[in-house]
Design a protein around this nucleic acid. Structure first.
Lengths: 193, 193, 193, 193
DNA sequence: TATGAATGAGAGTTCATTCAT
DNA sequence: GATGAATGAACTCTCATTCAT
């Protein structure tokens, strides 16, 4: 039941935003009563936080899996970027939940959200640090670089939503261009692709 | 009076977000009555849009000024990044306003906001295209690259807000690291700094 | 609880009119919270419509009961007129609600109100048509006649409200005079009372 | 200038009702500034009252003119009824201003409005009393009869507004049927038409 | 005289949350 | 555990009226 709630909440928060999404709507969409909703989560903010945590977990798992398979950094980068764009095609606007979160749209949650995003960025930073150690990418501030990468990818994917001509073009050219930009920002000094 | 309203609205929207900011609060903070507020702007959404437009205008003016002075692309990049970080020190959390906008937090404004951000991104894209023509940066999709740069910078500056240790570190290291990342993502093939 | 709301709303709308009656006042008068009010009715207009429907229903039931008892047309007329005047003594200024409705005081409700009044007038028209068939009243356009009768009665009862000398006189003489006027307007050619 | 204001106000009040008509709208429609509007009338209620007075005056003048021409009561009745219906075709919904007034839609004006309507009804009653004296119509309570006639006519003309089939039928059949009903309600005992 | 910028009380409505059942 | 009726603070927006110019 928690899962159904989180699935519905995640979808709604991502599509409509925190304030536009009502508890009644979440309950209805999840097929539970409001009472049940409040039985599982003490407040709307906790629902949001839980949905967000679930999304982070999914992404991180994906990135770690790729990394563990031993793919080179550039390949991991390319695949993660593609993952972001693909998530637009699949679950609609799923990828946005995270985007909403770190802009502090949610009132009393700034600290909790910052911490959550930090955890995610730090996980990315650890992957980057490993890649630096192996000499696959150039040395730089790992956490800063992680934040930069997240913003870079999210900004472009955000523009890829919609039915207009530009959005379609971004969907077509985005994955390659973004992966290229990210790779060039990171690649070691001496090598040229 | 319009200016005082936009100043107050810009600050509040940036700090609190669209939904957490009430018209009463804007009026009080600007030192005007609600009536006066509605005398100048027909709705809350228009206030938001106007505040956002003003901010974009400020940024764009700054970037154009730098560019017109004939500075090399890398230098413009460095200075614009610094501008973003500096705007955190000045106007408080000013930089957030733009970030909030393009996440579609505001109900009936998606189209207007997208258009506004597009206008800004296209202005950036034109600067990039000029730099490409001069051979100062490598050839790439100008609009996509513009969006990527905006996201990259905004994501990091967003983390630079706050009193915690990491934020302080980001404020210290951010300008240099971000400028470096952006430059590397853009620099021409043959040259290495 | 719905009944208490409708009772309070009917009274207030009748006394004060649609625009002068606030939802807060209705809630207070009915002894419920605003929330409860909106729990039962989606909008102020729906409250008004429901109160009006209830009033129509009461009147129609009364008229049908009299008719079903087999009373002659003139007697039904007399009793219905008396019913209108009596409703002033009981429910206060109840009779006004209907009067307010068909003057289109309520913004988006013209069509709904017209339909409601039409339903009532048509019910009256059906009774009139039956009486015509039996030769109890003269042949005429039933619906037009129904509207005429409603207006005739309502106009006089409206003047019967208040503490002034004329109102008192209208309350005293009204029932008889109105019934007489209505009857004469309707009675068959050949007969004279 | 007062006349232009009253013309605009009369039209708007009649079409939209008292509360839906704003002072700004009246000013705009009359082609004067709000300041000027308040220069000529101390409040919205006074504007309404003045517009209403003007309308009453117009009607009464018409009825008196007919009467003075020495037409028989039945003919006066017929022509006044037609006047009401015709006023729908001309000035739009002009005829309604009076209808709105006597339903006490206007807050602090009940007494003033009642008095105004009474003045009108009494003028009608005087005409009726004269006709009774001449034996043209049967003896009855003149004021009550006046109110009854007004209501009868107004109720039917109110239904004649609109584009639906019934409204068209009412416009076509109404004048004759209403005049017939009114005449029968009033005609002397011994005569049959 | 004439203007319209400015006022602010009050309107209808929403929605996270509670609690008796 | 589960329900959903009930709550009420807070929201955006309207508009009759005032008053400095």
């Amino acid at each position: 039941m928690e899962e159904r709630i989180l699935a519905a909440a995640g979808r709604l928060f991502a599509q409509e935003g925190f304030h536009r999404t009502g508890m009644r709507r979440i309950a209805a969409e999840a097929g539970v009563s409001i009472g049940a909703l409040y039985h599982y989560f003490p407040s709307k903010e906790e629902v949001f936080l839980a949905a967000l945590r679930a999304e982070y977990e999914r992404w991180l798992a994906e990135a770690r899996r790729l990394w563990a398979e031993g793919a080179p950094a550039r390949e991991v980068l390319r695949q993660v970027v593609e993952l972001h764009f693909a998530s637009l095609a699949r679950g609609g606007e799923r990828g946005f939940l995270v985007g909403r979160a770190w802009h502090g749209e949610v009132p009393g949650l700034r600290k909790a959200l910052l911490a959550l995003r930090d955890r995610y960025a730090q996980a990315v930073a650890r992957l980057l640090a490993q890649a630096m150690d192996r000499g696959e990418i150039r040395r730089a501030h790992p956490l800063l670089t992680a934040y930069a990468l997240l913003g870079l990818v999210e900004s472009v994917t955000a523009r890829a939503v919609g039915g207009d001509r530009v959005a379609a073009e971004v969907r077509r050219e985005g994955p390659r261009e973004v992966a290229e930009l990210a790779w060039r920002a990171l690649q070691p000094e001496e090598v040229r692709s």
